[in-house]
Simulated assay, not measured.
Amino acid sequence: MVVHTNLKELCTHKGSFSLQKNECENLLWSINKVEFDQSILIWHIATTLCYYLDVGNQDGSHIDICRTENKHISDYLMYLLVTYLVMLPIGIGMIRYRDTCAEAKRFFKEKGLITQNVEACLKLLEVESLEVLPSKVKGDRCKSALFDGFRVALTLKKIEKEHMWKVMSQGLKWIEILAYAATHCRGFHHQ
């Protein structure tokens, strides 16, 4: 297990340390090139898609525990983003969240999927790649993170399953994000 010896350092990485340690430099854009709230949305979408990819293969193994723990932390950070935005660093998280939900509903409707369930997640993962970067299609006005999250999930999907969950758990990916959030919000909200 990767352990940070310097807690101050842990709280500054936002997840990049774990990506570098696990040789996933191709995903650093999802941490370093986007705002923090966008990174939470991107990684929540990727975590959810990867989680549902394995939903039928649960056997109580270490990988299952890692997967479930990552999903819980991801869900918690989304809860903060939607319900207690003041607990996160200042950003436009609610706008991004609304745009992402609207884009997901449009996508699911176009694909004939009525609900946002396991089937819908698996439908997203059937696509092998995105021909054009999402930002080129949607422009600057739309703040959705749906297809950026999808891009991260596609990259993770290509990695061996055990290593994929190691990137997010053993490398403390979500713990780094949580630590960053806790130390970069207005402190009086922690009372």
Rank of each mutant, 00 (worst) to 15 (best):
C24K: 02
L124V: 10
Y84R: 11
Q38R: 09
N117Y: 05
K138C: 11
N57Q: 03
Y79G: 08
Q20W: 10
D37S: 11
K111D: 15
Y79L: 04
I31G: 00
Y51T: 03
S39G: 11
D37V: 01
E35P: 14
K33V: 04
K105R: 14
L7G: 12
N22F: 13
C11T: 10
R67V: 01
L88F: 05
G112N: 11
I90A: 14
M87I: 03
I92Y: 09
L53M: 08
E128A: 10
R141V: 13
P89A: 08
L19W: 00
K21D: 15
E126M: 09
K138A: 09
C11A: 10
T100W: 00
R96G: 13
I45N: 00
G112T: 14
L85H: 15
D37Q: 12
D99Y: 07
K8R: 09
V82G: 08
F108M: 12
K109Q: 10
C66D: 15
I40Y: 00
R141G: 05
D75L: 07
Y51S: 00
V127Y: 06
K8P: 04
V55M: 04
I63C: 09
N26Y: 11
P134C: 11
N26M: 06
K111N: 14
I73R: 03
Q38M: 02
V55P: 04
W43E: 01
K21H: 15
N70H: 04
C101E: 15
E128Q: 08
T100F: 02
K123M: 15
L49Q: 02
L80G: 01
M94C: 05
K143D: 03
F108R: 15
S144P: 06
N117F: 06
V34R: 10
L10P: 01
K105Y: 10
I73S: 00
C66K: 15
W43V: 00
R141H: 15
F36Y: 06
C11Q: 12
P134V: 14
L124Q: 01
S74D: 13
T100Q: 04
K143F: 04
E69N: 11
Q58T: 15
F36L: 10
V86A: 06
K14R: 07
A102P: 02
L19G: 00
L28V: 07
E103G: 03
K33F: 07
L28G: 05
E69P: 01
G15Q: 03
D99L: 06
E131H: 15
S129M: 06
I63A: 07
C24M: 09
L130Y: 14
S39M: 06
D54A: 13
E35F: 08
D75V: 05
Y79K: 10
R98H: 05
L10A: 14
L113W: 12
A46D: 01
E110W: 12
L41A: 07
D75G: 04
C101G: 13
L81W: 00
K136P: 08
E23S: 05
E126G: 09
P89K: 01
I31Q: 00
V118S: 08
L77T: 01
G139D: 04
K8W: 10
P89L: 02
I90E: 13
A104F: 11
P89D: 12
T100D: 04
H13P: 01
N117R: 04
L81Q: 00
R106I: 03
L130N: 06
S61H: 08
K111P: 10
K105C: 08
D37Y: 02
C121S: 12
Y51C: 02
L88K: 01
M87L: 08
N70V: 02
